[in-house]
Write a protein that binds this DNA or RNA. Sequence first.
DNA 1: AACCCATTTCCTGGTT
DNA 2: GAACCAGGAAATGGGT
Length: 332
Amino acid sequence: MATTCEISNVFSNYFSTMYSSEDPNLASVPPATTFGADDLVLALSSPQMPLEGTEKASWLGEQPQLWSKAQVLDWISYQVEKHKYDASTIDLSRCDMDGAALCRCAPEELRLAFGPLGDQLYSQLWDLTSSFPDELSWIMELLEKDSMALQEPLGDQGPFGTGASQSPQASDSGGSDVDLDAPDSKLFSGDGFPDYKKGDLKHGKRKRGRPRKLSKDSRECLEGKKSKHAPRGTHLWEFIRDILIYPELNEGLMKWENRQEGVFKFLRSEAVAQLWGQKKKNSSMTYEKLSRAMRYYYKREILERVDGRRLVYKFGKNSSGWKEEEVVGHRN
DNA sequence: AACCCATTTCCTGGTT
DNA sequence: GAACCAGGAAATGGGT
């Protein structure tokens, strides 16, 4: 029924009023070309892609809680496009809210306002608040927990109130004490973690390959339907890249040797490995193993070999998002 | 259910 | 000798 054009029209009308009344900077966005779903999809599928001058998916790099009304609308329109939803059935007045308000909405409210799409919106929002930002916030969390003592969950608003979830996992999986320089000292105390590893290692051989996970249901039980895919797109090289480009996450873990060339160095190799292990819920990660994975990147040209330099690697042509130009778009 | 991908684990051997 | 580096081989888990 509703074609892409129709939807665009419906929303672009709304946009012109929104933008002109709210943010003079955004007012310049031409209504007709406000959002091409293609552009958005493209931007989405390759978050590393520099967003260039014109911010297409204005909401992309930002926490939903911080979205402006325009960004909320932008996002909703994207969801409409994405799900091929009939926009004409939507009560547009319901879209008049900022990110904080959106995040406060209960699933029923969204369903009321957006019909069946409401469910999609809810779960997508879930993804955005718990998965996408996870790309960074999880490191933040770990680092914060590292320095700060534990504190109770900031249980305030709706399901998205505090960014991630207050899942049992979220509250203790990272282990409130991330002893970055002391591999597996006391990590994962109460996570139901497979702690057979070390023991087995000491005594005899253990099975090769990745150890089985035990704490998987724990996070599925609270997500219910959201089970989709976890925080996708976070590969090792992206993890490394993010530590490098977000100084606030990089507490002396790594440094650029040559930013232009993409050459970087591990300063605290074991600490980085531990952090990676934290992310993968694998307490037995070591630099030895992490570096093996890094070496596999040579063949794929995600990394280039830098010989003679210990702990030094270089991003290759198949990596992205680390160049300064890219980072600007990525971050702000 | 089978396959593929991206690691993870282990290992041998070489280098700094 | 410790800490790395190079890769091969095999295993694993998530996604499709």
